[in-house]
């Protein structure tokens, strides 16, 4: 049994520079620990896909080393232990779901039993459909099943639940948790911050080819709360329709930021009670009031914006 801290895949000081001069990944170091779900977050162009492709052995690094199970990711033995789900625009459409799954199961020496796989990806009843006849969400589930076909120890999932309805998304989340519970390692890139928050043991936030921060979802949230003037991470977001000007609001004690979208004003403040008391007195017409805790999304936006 692998210990919880064993590294199954890593990038060491890896740089990937394209011929057009763009540096997608810049002296990046990443470590994936066994049995963990790791979420890679970042805006478009942050280098997430490149980092994942380096670990899948689809792209060669300009410098630095990439190691998966202690060897080159392109090694056939390494590939027998990894499963990959990529954003695929079009798979062969005139093959049935059953055929696609079994072709990939055939690549591995110890594939996952067919029935288990269909259950895991919620594909029961769709086995005889042609890939081209499936809905977007169903196609996504076939690709998920393909990633799990070999019962791999390390699974790369690139935006696994994009285009899925809530029910299928929850089903896939449950499967990802079950994988980790069985000691498998999952690296997931996602645009759904909620997904990273719900699934990941560790979140790695990337921007411009570098890691900005990494930690548990709670740690990443508190790091995002690190506004220059913030003394604690207990700040709140107040949203409402108000006639008070942004300058006025900004001048109130504890207010860190004010922004306006449409008729709604958003105030980030360390002292929500004091701010609200003052606002309610000054603006009798204040309406549509909401107070919320900063979500991972806000932390994420703060972190990537600061860089």
């Amino acid at each position: 049994m692998l210990s919880a801290t064993q590294t199954v895949a890593s990038l060491e000081n890896t740089t990937k520079r394209y011929k057009n001069g763009v540096t997608a990944v810049d002296h990046l170091s990443l470590h994936l620990s066994s049995g963990q779900v790791i979420a890679l977050l970042g805006p478009n162009g942050a280098g997430k896909s490149t980092a994942v492709k380096l670990m899948m052995g689809l792209s060669a690094p300009t410098s630095g080393t990439v190691s998966v199970f202690g060897s080159d990711p392109r090694n056939p033995h390494t590939r027998l232990r990894t499963g990959v789900m990529l954003q695929v625009g079009r798979a062969p459409e005139m093959l049935r779901v059953r055929e696609h799954i079994n072709i990939f199961r055939g690549y591995y020496s110890n594939p996952m039993p067919y029935e288990d796989l269909m259950k895991a990806a919620a594909l029961e009843g769709l086995e005889d459909r042609f890939f081209g006849q499936l809905s977007g969400g169903q196609k996504q589930r076939v690709l998920f099943a393909i990633a799990l076909a070999g019962d791999p120890d390390l699974v790369f999932l690139d935006e696994p639940t994009v285009g899925l309805d809530i029910e299928s998304r929850r089903a896939i989340w449950a499967e990802i948790r079950a994988l980790a519970a069985r000691g498998k390692t999952v690296l997931l890139t996602t645009h759904y911050l909620e997904e990273a928050d719900a699934l990941a043991h560790r979140i790695i936030v990337m921007n411009k080819g570098r890691v900005i921060c990494a930690g548990t979802p709670a740690e990443v949230k508190s790091m995002g709360a690190g506004y220059p003037s913030a003394t604690a991470n207990g700040f709140k977001i107040v949203r409402c329709a108000t006639t008070l000007t942004a300058d006025h609001l900004q001048a109130m004690p504890g207010v860190l930021a004010v922004s306006t979208t449409g008729h709604l004003t958003e105030i980030t403040t360390e002292q929500p009670e004091a701010a609200l008391r003052e606002m309610l007195v000054l603006d009798r017409s204040l309406s549509a009031l909401e107070v919320e805790c900063p979500a991972l999304e806000d932390a994420f936006l703060t972190l990537t914006a600061e860089n």
Binding site: K53, M56, G57, L58, P76, R79, L80, T82, V84, L86, V88, A91, F104, Y107, Y108, L143, I146, G150, F156
Partner: peptide, 8 residues
């Protein structure tokens, strides 16, 4: 790419 990343 998906085929390439598989052990095929």
């Amino acid at each position: 790419e998906l085929k390439q990343a598989s052990p095929m």
